[in-house]
Structure formats: C-alpha cells, structure tokens
Design a protein around this nucleic acid. Sequence first.
DNA 1: ATGGTGGTCCTACCA
Length: 269
Amino acid sequence: MPIAVATWNINSVRLRLQLVLDYLQRARPDVLCLQETKCLDDQFPRSAFKEIGYAHQAIRGDKGYNGVAILSRLPLGEPSCLPFGRKGDARHIASEVRSEAGVAVTVHNFYVPAGGDIADPELNVKFAHKLGFLKDMREWSAQQAGIGGLAVITGDLNIAPYESDVWSHKQLLDVVSHTPVETEALEDIRCCGDWTDAVRHRIPEPERVYTWWSYRAVDWRASNRGRRLDHIWVSSPLAGSIGEVTIETAARGLERPSDHVPVLLSLTL
DNA sequence: ATGGTGGTCCTACCA
C-alpha cells in the first residue's frame, strides 16, 4: 500500500478552507502538510477536515501569522515540535504516520522563515533569523542521519536551491531565497542528513519546476517568474520508495488562490 | 520600472 504525502502553503487556512477541501477530495493524499495557516489552534477548522476523512490532525498555530498543520487519513502519533529560530514560533510540527500495513513514517512539516528583502544578516534581522533557523536545521539533520529511520521532510523551505528552480538564476542571485549562502545551507542540510530531494529525483534538472508565483505579477502565468520553494525530501531508507510526484500548478489559477501550489509525493511502501 | 498584491487585524506587520 503506497502512502501519498502532500504539502501546501495555504496563506490562511480559514480564508481558503474550501480550496483545501476541494484539493483533498480530488487528490485524496493520505497526509497533507499545511503552512501559514495563520490562526490559533482553537480557530482551526478541525471538523470540516474530519468530515471528509481527515480525522487525524496535528496542529500548531500563532495568531495571524505562521502556523503549521498535518492532516491525515491514517493514524498519527503524538506530535512534537522543534524550537528552531525564535522560540515558540509555529514553524515546525512532526508526527508519525502509520500505514495500513503497519509501516511507520515520521513526517516533519517545516515553515522556514522567508528572510525579508535584504540578503545581509547585518542589515536585516529577518535574514539573520533565517540563517539561524537553517543552522539549527543543519545540526538536527546531521543527528537524524545517525538514527536511520523512515522519515520525510516537507514544507515551505523558502529556498529555491538549484538553477532550474527559479525563472532566472542570474537575476535572482542577490534575491532572498536564491542567494548562495541560502542555497548552500540548504544543500548542506540535505546532504549531511542523507536526504533525497524526491521532486528532483523524479523531475531532474534542467527541467524547470516552480511551486510559488508572486501575487505581485500582473499575469503570473504569462510572466511565469516562479520559484521552487516547497519541497519533499525522504530519508535514505525511503529513497527506493519514491513514486509519482505531482505539482498542482493549476491551483495558482483558482479564484483567490494561495501564492503556493500543492506538491504531492507517492511513497511505494 | 526599486513598483507591484495579498492576509491579518487596526495600524502596521508579515509574506
């Protein structure tokens, strides 16, 4: 039995609840990781997801910003959170998903800080915060490699690591999300933990892959100035289980869309 | 062209 894991930065789960319900009904992933839910836990629309089969939920929100959630059709274990970046920020939640065959996979849902506009930690505290978060992730990732379990890292990592992850490598080298200090940090996190980038495994470079298009474009489809900010990585014991990958580009063209689209990976367990 | 749009929640802050 395969397990399908999806990720989507929804930019307010309350405003876009119907879009999420429609996506779940159509794609039927076993697990959906949401970022930027932008609400406190008691405001989270738990029952709406429960009604369509996503009864297992691990949620962690802040008032009006950040916020992560794992929605699952399969049983979830006790959730945990890593205290990276500013302590208390709702930017990570993890839980163990159990397949019908009894295989347990730990799903880590991350929302890495965007980092502001200026790519200099001396001039921009948000960029310093992002680099600090990545440093914490690196240390944790190196420890994870030694554990050797079945695990997935997913979410909005707010970094487009490769040249074909952005519309113009040269024009974005100074732009936060694609600067060398960030792309090298992300690659280091991935390598030191022996994670496989499942999307790039299925869709190798130089094919362009984007998961985010700015709201500020006059016509996002025509200009197509996208970036691949949302990722799904698998631990080395799962590298041989990477199945189909689906980037739900059409979601960017929905009415009142998120600026990110869903990314889905099927694991052939 | 140094703008542009969108969400939250009350005046800016975040992306």
